[in-house]
């Protein structure tokens, strides 16, 4: 939850990984801005009788792809909500261990989703799922999503290594 407030001063993993993950999230943000612009255009267009065809499905697809691209960033800056009250008095090693547990779960989740959604993409392609009005093939959206899960795995691995370091140093990361 604290991630809403502070962006600086949080552990951001190793340089190259952090940079790629941040850039990927910002690309997702740019996509979100594009959806914003398209929606504004749709409202203005409707006023003058030029509605944007397929605005609903473009919004759905664009926002979904953007949201997936944010996941690696959330892991990197550890902004996923945790309830800290029970463990705030625990020693640094315990905290580092619990944090490591979280990173492991994130890593396994990322790998599982990468595998499952790859199959999902194949299904979408095989059965030729497409959107109603613009007839955009849905599997196309799965490509950036798979990249997002690959990056989530990398991101989780990087926080995991960080936790291992802290565990061996007996230090805490935040």
């Amino acid at each position: 939850m604290a991630g809403m407030l502070e962006q600086e001063g949080r552990p951001e993993g190793t340089g190259a990984v952090a940079r790629i993950v941040v850039i990927w999230a910002l690309l997702g943000g740019a996509l979100l801005l594009a959806v914003v612009v398209m929606n504004v255009a749709s409202v203005l267009g409707t006023l003058v009788g030029w509605p944007v065809p397929g605005d609903f499905e473009m919004t759905e697809m664009g926002v979904a792809v953007a949201a997936f691209s944010f996941l690696p960033y959330c892991q990197l800056i550890r902004s996923n909500v945790t309830a800290d009250i029970f463990t705030q008095n625990a020693g640094p090693r315990t905290q580092a261990f619990l944090s490591l547990l979280g990173s492991v779960i994130a890593l396994l989740f990322a790998l599982l989703m990468l595998w499952r959604m790859y199959d999902g993409m194949i299904d979408q392609k095989t059965y030729a799922y497409e959107t109603s009005i613009l007839q955009i093939p849905v599997w196309l959206a799965f490509i950036p999503i798979l990249v997002s899960f690959a990056l989530l795995a990398v991101s989780a691995l990087s926080t995991l290594l960080q936790d291992v370091r802290h565990l061996s140093n007996g230090a805490i990361h935040d």
Partner: peptide, 17 residues
């Protein structure tokens, strides 16, 4: 960029939940 990062972290968290 700051606003987009903030949006990314909050949105990602909500969607995961």
């Amino acid at each position: 960029f700051g606003a987009l990062r903030e949006t990314a972290s909050t949105t990602g968290m909500i969607y995961l939940i």
